[in-house]
Design a protein around this nucleic acid. Sequence first.
DNA 1: TGCCAGGCCCTCTTTAGGGCCTT
Length: 212
Amino acid sequence: MSRLGAAGMETLAVIDFETTGMSPGQGARATEIAVVLVCDGRIVDRYQNLMKTGAYIPPFIEELTGISNAMTRNAPAADKVMREVADFVGGYPLVAHNAAFDKKFWDAELARAGKARQQEFTCSLLLARRIYPNAPNHKLGTLVRYAQVPEAGRYHRALADAEMTANLFLRMEEELIRRYRLDSVPHALWQAIQATPKNKLEACVERFRGND
DNA sequence: TGCCAGGCCCTCTTTAGGGCCTT
């Protein structure tokens, strides 16, 4: 499901988690979440909150993110934040950089809040590998510089990373429209590109155009 | 006890291994 914005464009929710580790299956918990809504080629709304889970943040992660144990101790409860952010996102399609990571935490933290995911994720990392195959690598920071996307604050804070992911996504949209002379890039085409083999981007777009 | 992510994607591949990405 995707709702339409004022100009008839689809709205997408770009999400980023900061966490205590790599996997909720190993006990890692979220420490911060941000979502930016993208519609009609721009960011139209934002949500950001630290969240208190009681999980210990290792020193390495405190250093990486700038989010300390003291900060999360005074944050609102994780289940309350997750219910709020789920209401904010609604049924909009979700986008994240390396979505497999954020999807694990989205599902795990939502479940703890008594809710379930309503929509699929689109991965800006998989899209970037297809659209920018010649980038030095496909880390978010590298792609921001490679695609000349404005930096939005400190890397590894949720809102800054979500905004940069959103701006990277919008830049990739512009690139596809320019390269293949499209009117727009509907969500279904993003999903098709993500699922297509890495060296078959052009064929994927042409097939979609033919079916459109 | 000891270990501990996991999906994508390339290649010296498919009866597999290892780097890339996310915190």
